[in-house]
Amino acid sequence: MRLADVLNIVQARFFLPDSVQSPSPSVLNRELRVGGSADLMSDVLCYDMSQGLLITGLINPQTVRTAEMVDVAAILIVRGKTPPPETIRTAWEAGIPLLGTQMTMFEACGRLYMANLPSAVRFAGAPPPDCTAH
């Protein structure tokens, strides 16, 4: 699935720095291998998200940093949230396209899953996620 398809499927738009008017066509052609959704960044680090689409409701710059560490191809912000300028700038500098949709995480995942974007796979040996009672 290409990034251009994601734009259509979840009716997304790009978040770009003020100095940039439109994304280059090559970004739209970027191929996405898998999808993964989480609002917990440590959990994202447990998945093989390389060349994947990260679907999240988090809008702070750490979202981008986390994505950068695991070689994510693009980030989709759900629930109609607008990221602050520092997040947009960080994404632009890291070369990671930042998209936003009005849809909830459930709907965005549902539509992309139905359009055959496969799920990211957990790394072998990754810890079980949050199982705390502390």
């Binding site: 917990l40 960044m41 440590s42 447990c46 990754a126 810890p127 996620p129 705390t132 502390h134």
Partner: peptide
């Protein structure tokens, strides 16, 4: 999005 107790595990 942090503090889920997975940091040291990661």
């Amino acid at each position: 999005g942090f503090g889920a107790g997975m940091g040291l595990q990661n």
